[in-house]
Protein backbone atom coordinates (compact mmCIF):
# COMPACT_ATOMS: atom_id res chain seq x y z
CA UNK A 1 0.00 0.00 0.00
CA UNK A 2 1.39 3.31 -1.03
CA UNK A 3 1.97 5.88 1.71
CA UNK A 4 -0.62 8.49 2.50
CA UNK A 5 0.23 12.03 1.57
CA UNK A 6 -0.26 14.77 4.08
CA UNK A 7 0.08 18.52 3.44
CA UNK A 8 0.73 20.97 6.27
CA UNK A 9 0.08 24.71 5.74
CA UNK A 10 1.18 26.95 8.62
CA UNK A 11 3.20 30.16 8.65
CA UNK A 12 4.90 28.89 11.83
CA UNK A 13 7.66 26.77 10.29
CA UNK A 14 8.14 24.77 13.52
CA UNK A 15 4.59 23.43 13.22
CA UNK A 16 5.31 22.06 9.74
CA UNK A 17 8.67 20.73 10.84
CA UNK A 18 7.33 18.89 13.90
CA UNK A 19 4.29 17.43 12.14
CA UNK A 20 6.55 16.31 9.32
CA UNK A 21 9.00 14.64 11.75
CA UNK A 22 6.25 12.92 13.71
CA UNK A 23 4.21 11.73 10.71
CA UNK A 24 7.18 10.69 8.58
CA UNK A 25 8.27 8.56 11.50
CA UNK A 26 4.97 6.69 11.08
CA UNK A 27 5.50 6.31 7.35
CA UNK A 28 3.47 9.15 5.95
CA UNK A 29 4.72 11.42 3.19
CA UNK A 30 4.51 14.98 4.44
CA UNK A 31 4.95 18.26 2.57
CA UNK A 32 4.95 21.56 4.43
CA UNK A 33 4.08 25.06 3.21
CA UNK A 34 4.33 28.44 4.93
CA UNK A 35 1.87 30.13 2.54
CA UNK A 36 -1.48 28.92 1.20
CA UNK A 37 -0.94 29.97 -2.44
CA UNK A 38 1.97 27.65 -3.33
CA UNK A 39 0.25 24.93 -1.28
CA UNK A 40 -2.94 25.18 -3.34
CA UNK A 41 -0.85 25.17 -6.52
CA UNK A 42 0.89 22.00 -5.34
CA UNK A 43 -2.51 20.36 -4.70
CA UNK A 44 -3.24 20.68 -8.42
CA UNK A 45 -0.08 18.70 -9.25
CA UNK A 46 -0.19 16.03 -6.59
CA UNK A 47 -2.87 14.10 -4.79
CA UNK A 48 -2.95 14.57 -1.02
CA UNK A 49 -5.17 12.66 1.37
CA UNK A 50 -5.12 15.07 4.26
CA UNK A 51 -4.46 18.80 4.51
CA UNK A 52 -3.68 20.25 7.92
CA UNK A 53 -4.00 24.06 7.73
CA UNK A 54 -3.71 26.96 10.11
CA UNK A 55 -6.77 29.21 10.30
CA UNK A 56 -5.07 32.61 10.41
CA UNK A 57 -2.30 33.35 7.95
CA UNK A 58 -0.98 36.45 6.25
CA UNK A 59 -1.79 35.86 2.58
CA UNK A 60 -5.02 33.96 2.69
CA UNK A 61 -7.40 33.00 5.43
CA UNK A 62 -7.36 29.29 6.41
CA UNK A 63 -11.11 29.47 5.82
CA UNK A 64 -10.35 30.38 2.19
CA UNK A 65 -8.00 27.38 1.90
CA UNK A 66 -10.77 25.13 3.27
CA UNK A 67 -13.32 26.51 0.81
CA UNK A 68 -10.99 26.15 -2.19
CA UNK A 69 -10.08 22.55 -1.33
CA UNK A 70 -13.66 21.49 -0.61
CA UNK A 71 -14.87 23.17 -3.82
CA UNK A 72 -12.21 21.59 -6.01
CA UNK A 73 -11.52 18.22 -4.34
CA UNK A 74 -14.13 17.47 -1.69
CA UNK A 75 -12.60 14.03 -1.01
CA UNK A 76 -9.50 15.61 0.60
CA UNK A 77 -9.79 15.64 4.40
CA UNK A 78 -9.10 19.02 5.90
CA UNK A 79 -8.06 19.52 9.52
CA UNK A 80 -8.03 23.09 10.81
CA UNK A 81 -5.68 24.17 13.56
CA UNK A 82 -5.63 27.59 15.11
CA UNK A 83 -4.08 29.59 17.91
CA UNK A 84 -7.00 31.99 17.62
CA UNK A 85 -9.61 29.53 18.87
CA UNK A 86 -13.15 30.71 19.20
CA UNK A 87 -16.46 28.90 19.08
CA UNK A 88 -17.52 31.05 16.11
CA UNK A 89 -14.44 30.00 14.15
CA UNK A 90 -15.03 26.30 14.93
CA UNK A 91 -18.71 26.47 13.92
CA UNK A 92 -17.75 28.31 10.73
CA UNK A 93 -15.10 25.67 9.92
CA UNK A 94 -17.49 22.73 10.39
CA UNK A 95 -20.19 24.51 8.39
CA UNK A 96 -17.68 24.63 5.56
CA UNK A 97 -17.14 20.91 5.89
CA UNK A 98 -13.88 20.88 7.79
CA UNK A 99 -13.20 17.33 8.95
CA UNK A 100 -11.79 18.32 12.30
CA UNK A 101 -10.76 21.34 14.27
CA UNK A 102 -7.80 21.62 16.70
CA UNK A 103 -6.88 24.44 18.99
CA UNK A 104 -3.20 25.13 19.60
CA UNK A 105 -1.34 23.74 21.48
CA UNK A 106 -2.02 20.59 19.47
CA UNK A 107 -1.42 17.14 20.92
CA UNK A 108 0.43 15.28 18.16
CA UNK A 109 -0.92 11.91 19.28
CA UNK A 110 -4.49 13.28 18.96
CA UNK A 111 -3.64 14.63 15.54
CA UNK A 112 -2.30 11.24 14.48
CA UNK A 113 -5.39 9.48 15.77
CA UNK A 114 -7.57 11.95 13.91
CA UNK A 115 -5.66 11.47 10.65
CA UNK A 116 -5.92 7.70 10.99
CA UNK A 117 -9.64 7.88 11.69
CA UNK A 118 -10.21 10.11 8.67
CA UNK A 119 -8.11 7.92 6.40
CA UNK A 120 -9.99 4.80 7.41
CA UNK A 121 -13.23 6.44 6.36
CA UNK A 122 -11.76 6.58 2.83
CA UNK A 123 -9.53 3.81 1.54
CA UNK A 124 -6.22 4.92 0.07
CA UNK A 125 -6.29 5.35 -3.65
CA UNK A 126 -2.61 6.07 -3.98
Amino acid sequence: MAAYRIMVIDDENIVGKMIKTAFEHDGYIVETFLNPKPALARLKEEKFHVVITDLKMKDMDGMGVLKTIKDESPEIKVIMITAFASLDAAVEAFRRNANDFFAKPVKISDLKACVQRLLHETPSQG
Binding site: I14, M18, F84, P105
Partner: peptide
Protein backbone atom coordinates in the same frame (compact mmCIF):
# COMPACT_ATOMS: atom_id res chain seq x y z
CA UNK B 1 -2.36 38.15 21.94
CA UNK B 2 -4.13 34.80 22.02
CA UNK B 3 -2.69 34.20 18.57
CA UNK B 4 0.66 35.63 19.49
CA UNK B 5 1.04 33.48 22.62
CA UNK B 6 -0.79 30.45 21.26
CA UNK B 7 1.72 29.94 18.44
CA UNK B 8 4.96 29.77 20.47
CA UNK B 9 3.20 27.66 23.13
CA UNK B 10 2.10 25.26 20.43
CA UNK B 11 5.61 25.19 18.98
CA UNK B 12 7.14 24.35 22.37
CA UNK B 13 4.48 21.74 22.98
CA UNK B 14 5.02 20.04 19.60
CA UNK B 15 8.80 20.08 19.96
CA UNK B 16 8.52 18.57 23.43
CA UNK B 17 6.06 15.91 22.25
CA UNK B 18 8.36 14.84 19.43
CA UNK B 19 11.39 15.00 21.73
CA UNK B 20 9.73 12.58 24.15
CA UNK B 21 8.15 10.32 21.55
CA UNK B 22 11.13 10.11 19.20
Amino acid sequence: VAHELGNPLNNISMVAQNYLAL
